[in-house]
Design a protein around this nucleic acid. Sequence first.
DNA 1: CCTTGAACCTGCGGGC
DNA 2: TGCCCGCAGGTTCAAG
Length: 272
Amino acid sequence: MPELPEVETVRRGLEKAVHGERILNVTLRRENLRIPFPEGFSEKLCGRKIQAVRRRAKYLLFDLEGGISLIGHLGMSGNFRFCDAAALLRPHDHVVFMLERGNALVFNDPRRFGLMDIAPTQELEAHLLFAHLGPEPLSDDFSVAYLKKALARRSGPIKNALMDAALVVGVGNIYACEALFGAKISPDRPAGSVSGKAEIVHESIRKVLEEAIQSGGSSLRDFLSAEGKAGYFQHRFQVYGREGKPCFHCAAPIQRIRQAGRSTFFCTACQK
DNA sequence: CCTTGAACCTGCGGGC
DNA sequence: TGCCCGCAGGTTCAAG
């Protein structure tokens, strides 16, 4: 489900809905997602007011009063929704946060690749989950010079490099494919050989992410924002999921190949 | 170092 | 209709 634009869309919806809300009660309906919930999960959160909802990479950060933060990751299939306290829970509803205003924030995740953890707000940067992460693609830290240098010392395919969170965070399978189409670069070119085109790649990554955020993300099968709305950037995909269909630019059929276990879509005529 | 492949899970759609 | 297979937006770990 979620790459940076989808997580950012969820963040914005949550920020609007839960800012200043107090968590009255937390119910865990199983003991783990991708990793176990931390010891004392519910007790640590209860009674605290939510002061901000931030994002780092594809992680959501709920800053709570008292200097602790709830860390959440949606994995492939996670989503948050609001419902009446009385509403019946659905399959795969793993966490229920009862809020002061009387409604509940529910975390649902069929595949359970998501996770939740708690850490002191001041120590998030050093948290194990974040320690190895590269720069945010939409921040100043992600500069053309940085990208040029990072690509230069890699020999693997450019597409895998763009999806590597140590190089830049937030770019997953969809947006790596779309960014490379925008840059007219073949996904299987060695990253090092694209270093000279760092400026084009840089611009293409930012453009596709920004446009996708503007569109509320991409909804393939199940992505919904916290407000329950589908995104619509999927209607603007140039290559992702379009195997065999004509390239919008040159009409050649879009190809699908496999890279590092993931499907890559691209136009062999437009992308060199 | 760097890179790939498998593993973690459930659900869906296509082909037979 | 039903079953089996392959596939899916992410991340991590072992092994090459």
